[in-house]
Design a binder for these strands. Structure first.
Lengths: 210, 210
DNA sequence: TCATTTTGTGAACACCGTTCACTTTGATGT
DNA sequence: ACATCAAAGTGAACGGTGTTCACAAAATGA
């Protein structure tokens, strides 16, 4: 039952975004009354939070898989950053909504703890790991503060994901077509981000054009 | 009258975000009936769009002021990127809402044209200008595709702004305090972004720590 | 079979954006 | 000063939302 509700919600959410997702809509979808849902979930927010958390679980999983591959560091790092954005954009509504929630002004200890083991933060932890590894192995500049650098990297990836989430065809929307596919643009962006960290980034190949 | 409505809306919007902004709330604020507002604005969306557009107008203005200063290119570029984020974060609700609107799937010519001279896109154009100038003056790598690079830069800035908008105390929230103030972190981020574009970025000073 | 607990419902509440027939207001023309 | 007419403003309603609560139905256990 709980599954059926979450499935229906997931379906509607993916198709029509958080705006199109209403308790009554879900109730229709599973042929129950709206009130029935409250026997299984305390509120709409709780239900939606579960969807978001599950979605970020899949992002986390995906990034983890990449990071665990036995490839040389530079390609692993690249794939990891690009992978975060790619996976995020498999469900743009989910990704945008996962951040569009309330401004976190609540700094109570329990909220902070709850946040600390959210999949969102775990995914960020993977990024931190990559940055740290890059610094320790000498690929990245040794004077970078790892934690802050990871946050900066995360912000850059987040920004691209949000751009795509809000402007369906982001890179082509504002000016003339760039000739880059979506994936190519993500690679391009990831390359620029990594280049900003590299100790000796002046390699001759143009970044990520393939 | 129109002014009074917009003022009240602006006030509520800034304080409580788009969620707390309702027609009835505005009506209360100005001691009119909800229906009265529809004599001056076609819909809530239209009203809110005006607020967003005005807000981005202020961002545009701010970035323009910086870009027009007669400072050496590197500091102008830095100030410009950091300025975008700073100005955006003067009204975090505005900034987040300006992008959180509907996913733009509508590619009709008139919508596209309307979008083309939105202040949002004009602000982006300023960034494009900076990037182009950097490439032409030899500060940035000559093989960068200007338009795509500008979009990547924009995405990175956008991401940081969104992070701050959603997590009030972003850089300190997830791990231990970084010791950087908000402004310092923004500078740090802007420096990394610029560094990713520089032709010979290996200067010895640590980026933006001040 | 009876009692109890779980599961589902219908109606309601308070809120939302929006519309529409209506009254009030104020200015204009004579 | 009076009539006229458009503009400004309103109250009530419609359909939508999340949520609650007293109640009915069904399943469970003895």
């Amino acid at each position: 039952m709980r599954e059926a509700i979450l499935d229906a919600a997931e379906r509607v959410f993916a198709d029509e975004g958080e705006a199109g997702l209403s308790i009554r809509r879900i109730a229709d979808e599973i042929d129950y009354s709206p009130a029935a849902i409250y026997k299984y979930f305390g509120s709409k927010d709780e239900l939606v939070d579960i969807l978001k958390e599950a979605f970020f679980g899949r992002i986390l999983q995906s990034v983890h898989n990449i990071v665990d591959k036995s490839e040389p560091f530079p390609v692993r790092a690249r794939h990891c950053l690009a992978g975060y954005v790619c996976k995020a954009l498999e469900k743009p509504h989910h990704y945008a909504a996962a951040f569009a929630g309330e401004s976190i002004t609540d700094r109570s200890p329990e909220k902070l703890a709850e946040m600390a083991d959210s999949n969102r933060v775990k995914a960020f932890a993977v990024l931190t790991g990559i940055v740290t590894e890059g610094i320790e192995t000498g690929h990245f500049r040794p004077d970078l503060p790892p934690s802050d650098t990871a946050k900066s990297v995360w912000a850059s990836l987040h920004g691209l994901a949000m751009m795509f989430a809000h402007f369906e065809a982001f890179p082509d929307l504002l000016t003339m077509p760039s000739g880059m596919s979506r994936d190519a643009f993500i690679d391009f962006h990831a390359d620029l981000v990594i280049r900003s960290l590299e100790r000796a980034p002046g390699r001759a190949d143009t970044p990520g054009r393939g």
